[in-house]
């Protein structure tokens, strides 16, 4: 049974819809992972030890186990404790938390590398510790880590394919649906791969533009 790409156009609408879902899930998870990363970084650096220690452990677990396993835990675990979330919400939470931990690692290093004088100066002009962090230290730290966070976001886009396994109808599962109707796995997975590749190129383009703007503003 050779290849026959003429079956693709008839199912392109499901694939495109899947594309939109993939983008929506990736964007939502990216936003969650960005702000989650900042919150996690502040907890890890400034939280009281009673919160910090279990938090460190959690971070360690998130970085030491596969995302797919974490998705199963979140999806089935939430159901078990009585929270019945739609699969795509569980997927966004899983992806978002996973990458928040990775972003947090980057942001922690960046916060520590912001000159101590910045905090001291902010305190001197009358800002509280929290205000100084929020308005002076964190914005500078975040600016420094935008390029590596961009790499994490590109990884997030590719890993969003995993949420198909818990039944979210994004690009990968849409391709599977089309395959179910046509028995043409090679063609449709290749088409899905092409769409991921294009989205990926788009993200790399945006990333380069943002990096250029940051290097100008510095």
């Amino acid at each position: 049974m050779g290849l026959d790409f003429t079956v693709v156009p008839a199912h392109i609408d499901i694939i495109l819809l899947g594309c939109l879902w993939t983008i929506a899930i990736a964007v939502a998870a990216a936003v969650l992972s960005f702000f989650g990363g900042i919150v996690f970084a502040v907890i890890a650096l400034y939280g009281p030890w009673i919160i910090r220690l279990p938090f460190r452990l959690l971070e360690w677990v998130f970085m030491g186990t596969p995302l797919l396993l974490q998705l199963f835990l979140i999806y089935f675990g939430l159901v078990q404790i009585g929270i019945d979330l739609p699969a795509f919400v569980a997927g966004i939470i899983g992806l978002g938390l996973h990458f928040a931990v990775y972003n947090s690692e980057l942001i922690q290093t960046a916060i520590l590398s912001v000159d101590k004088g910045q905090m001291e100066a902010a305190r001197t002009v009358g800002l509280s510790r929290g205000q100084a962090l929020r308005k002076v230290v964190i914005p500078q730290a975040v600016r420094d880590v935008i390029p590596p966070i961009g790499n994490n976001m590109i990884a997030l886009l590719k890993d969003s394919a995993l949420v198909s396994v818990i039944g979210v109808s994004e690009l990968t599962l849409s391709a599977q649906r089309a395959i179910g109707a046509t028995y043409r796995p090679f063609e449709f997975y290749l088409v899905a791969a092409a769409f991921y590749y294009v989205i990926n190129l788009g993200m790399e383009w945006v990333q380069r533009r943002i990096e250029r703007r940051i290097s100008i503003s510095r």
């Binding site: 590719k158 990968t172 391709a175 997975y189 791969a193 190129l201």
Partner: peptide, 8 residues
């Protein structure tokens, strides 16, 4: 590197 490993 530009496409998901799962799809590959």
């Amino acid at each position: 590197r530009g496409t998901p490993a799962l799809i590959q």
